[in-house]
Structure formats: C-alpha cells, structure tokens
C-alpha cells in the first residue's frame, strides 16, 4: 500500500520534472518574466545566441557518445580481468582504477586539450577516460559479487564459460553495473558543462556566457537546465537499476 503510493508519487514527480524540463528547452521564453528580475542594465534574460534545444541535444550527444564508448570498453576490460586468463591483471586494474578516480575530471579535460586541440574532441576524450573508471570498478564488483556456488552449479550442470557469463554472471551483476554507469554519466554531464570552456557545444555555454557578461539570469537558466538534465538522467537510471534488481529481492 505505502510502497505503491510512494511509487505513484515518484512517477508523478518525475512526470512533472520531465514536463518542466521540456518547457525550459522548447519554450525558454516562458521563463522570461522571473529571470528578468536578475538582470541589470537591460541585459537579455533568455540566452539567445543559440537555440536551447540545439545546445541540449549537443550536450546529450557528447555525453551519450562518450559514456556508451566508456561502457563498452569498461565492460570488456572488467570481464577480461575476471576471467581466468586475465586474473593476473586484476590487482593492478583495481589499483589503477582506484588511483585514476583521484584524477579530477577538470584535470582530465585540461590534459586532453593539448593532445586533441579545442572543440568537442577534448571533452569527448576526457568524458570517455573518466567515465571508464566507475563502470569498470562496478563491473568488477558486480561480477565478483556473484555467489561462487551459483557459478559452480552452472559449471557443474554443463554450461560453458561464455554461457555462464551471458546467462548468469552478467544478469546478476547488472544492477551494480548500472549503478556504475549512473555515476559515470552524472559526472560526464557535469564535465561536459565545463567542456564548454574549451569549445564543446553544450549547456555550459549559457552559464559561461552569463559569468563573462555578469548576467545572473543566464547563469541561473543554464545552471537549472544542466541540474535538471542530470537529475532526470539519474532518476531514469535509478529506475532501471531497481528494475534489474527486482526479481531477486522483490
């Protein structure tokens, strides 16, 4: 009963948030009145140098491309080091992933610029490199967390290694892997915002334009857009994570 009501509440809140976000992206003029209060000397209240929709799509595109590439590579490495053939690399892979996450995303971006030049490329590289780590770490945690007895039983019943991976280990590790992807993509959405300082087209442009022109309305508009994008993605992946967990602990 309570769980059901809570679920309805959650769905309702998510619906309102999605609708609000859609209005902010598709019809930003709707917020002109309240934002105008923050401007001074007749500054424009709504960012007009580019369409908000185009910036949002570009932002999401960069994040999606980098995160999906990171997902594929991190999964592949994570699977490799948990197989007998790759087990020797596991301790080192863990140490590198652990230390790698101390590398701040902004520093990753700063280092990517000299290597790739300005534009979307350094952002893509930085998002990809930084996005790898949480997914990789969680892939290992998820696969290692599968009960050895379950794997033993599967092997004893005549499943091949590949089949055990596909039908037993990966489905059981899935919620943990999604959790890692969730962390990765949230960090990426934030870092892509900073990427606007090196010429990546995205929502960060609005904030940076606001900071440069001392226009609080821009800063607020951009900040709320990015924050809502991140929160919505987080909610969506959280939902997927719970779904993946469901059959076992409903």
């Amino acid at each position: 009963m309570i769980a059901q009501r809570r679920r309805l509440l959650r769905i309702g809140a998510a619906g309102i948030a999605v609708a609000l976000f859609a209005v902010m992206v598709l019809a930003p003029e709707a917020f002109e009145r309240p934002l105008a209060a923050l401007t001074k000397f007749g500054q424009p209240a709504i960012y007009d140098r580019d369409s908000i929709l185009a910036l949002t799509l570009s932002h999401m595109g960069i994040v999606a491309a980098a995160s999906l590439a990171a997902l594929v590579i991190a999964l592949a490495i994570g699977i490799f080091v948990t197989r007998p053939a790759g087990a020797q690399y596991l301790p080192l892979a863990r140490a590198v992933a652990n230390l790698g996450q101390t590398f701040p995303p902004i520093a990753m971006l700063a280092v990517a610029v000299p290597l790739t030049g300005f534009g979307a490329r350094p952002t893509l590289v930085a998002l990809f490199a930084y996005g790898l780590l949480p997914i990789f770490e969680n892939t290992i945690a998820g696969l290692k967390g599968v009960s050895p007895q379950v794997v033993e039983a599967a092997r004893g019943m005549g499943m091949t290694g590949r089949r055990i991976l596909r039908e037993i280990e990966l489905p059981l590790a899935l919620p943990v892997i999604i959790a890692g992807f969730r962390v990765s993509i949230i960090v990426s959405i934030g870092t892509a915002t900073i990427g606007s300082t090196v010429g990546a087209k995205g929502l960060g442009e609005i904030i940076i334009a606001g900071l440069q022109a001392d226009n609080l309305a821009y800063v607020l508009q951009g900040g709320v857009l990015v924050a809502m994008l991140a929160i919505l993605v987080d909610l969506g992946l959280g939902f997927l994570e719970r779904r993946a967990r469901q059959p076992r602990s409903a």
């Binding site: 009960s147 007895q149 379950v150 033993e152 039983a153 019943m157 091949t160 489905p171 059959p247 076992r248």
Partner: peptide, 22 residues
C-alpha cells in the same frame, strides 16, 4: 568435452546454487 560430459551428469551441491534471477 567437459560441458557435454556434465550435461550427462546431474550435480547438486550443499549451497544449492540456485540462480537467484530465475
């Protein structure tokens, strides 16, 4: 081949090892 062999032999263990997602 081991996998083929094991298909002909049932295997039950103490921890049971039921697949929790199935």
């Amino acid at each position: 081949p081991p996998a083929t062999l094991r298909l002909r032999m049932g295997y039950a263990i103490q921890g049971i090892g039921l697949f929790p997602h199935r």
